[in-house]
Design a protein around this nucleic acid. Structure first.
Length: 155
DNA sequence: GCCAACGTTGGC
DNA sequence: GCCAACGTTGGC
């Protein structure tokens, strides 16, 4: 049986909310709270061992901060059922789950964070979805070229 | 803090 | 099914 090729993803997180250092400390975390259908669909197509570039948004400047790896594929996001959670969704039931999460583990923190400005001027990164005007998705696919460029810039 | 751009909701 | 109003995201 042939192995599926690795896919690459970019995960946004607000830096002061959950950073790559938090992930380093936790080693592994459930990537919950995604409440956008397009982003959820990307979560659902993630496979075990896929590589995720961890991006810090909402800071100056924002940028790519490290690498994570998918350790568990999509399953129902428990926060949608939790009445006390700000991500509670009254339309979701255990039988009809709406939102998914994956588990990711820490791989490495970049030696140098790659700012969005650097990405914008790098020819290999022009095609990144988050650099397109108006793009707000918190989960986006990366091409192998984009991912390896980011990894070499950050290492 | 501002605001452009997007997604969602709800009236019709 | 359209679209105005609203809420949110996220770079600046």
């Amino acid at each position: 049986m042939k192995k599926d090729p690795i896919q690459y993803w970019l995960l946004k997180s607000e830096a002061d909310c959950y950073s790559i250092l938090d992930l380093k400390k936790d080693k592994k975390v459930a990537w919950t709270d995604v409440r956008n259908f397009q982003a959820r669909n990307f979560l659902r197509s993630m496979k075990k061992n896929d590589v995720c570039i961890f991006y810090h948004s909402n800071k100056t400047p924002p940028g790519a901060a490290g690498i994570a790896r998918v350790v568990k594929v999509a399953y129902p996001d428990p926060t949608q059922f939790d009445k006390k959670s700000e991500f509670f969704d009254p339309k979701a039931t255990k039988e009809k789950s709406i939102w998914d999460c994956v588990d990711i583990s820490f791989v490495k923190k970049f030696n140098k964070e790659i700012s969005i400005n650097e990405m914008r001027i790098d020819p290999a990164l022009q095609s990144m979805i988050i650099l397109q005007k108006g793009s707000r998705l918190s989960v986006t696919p990366l091409s192998e070229r984009e991912a390896s460029r980011l990894i070499s810039l950050g290492s």
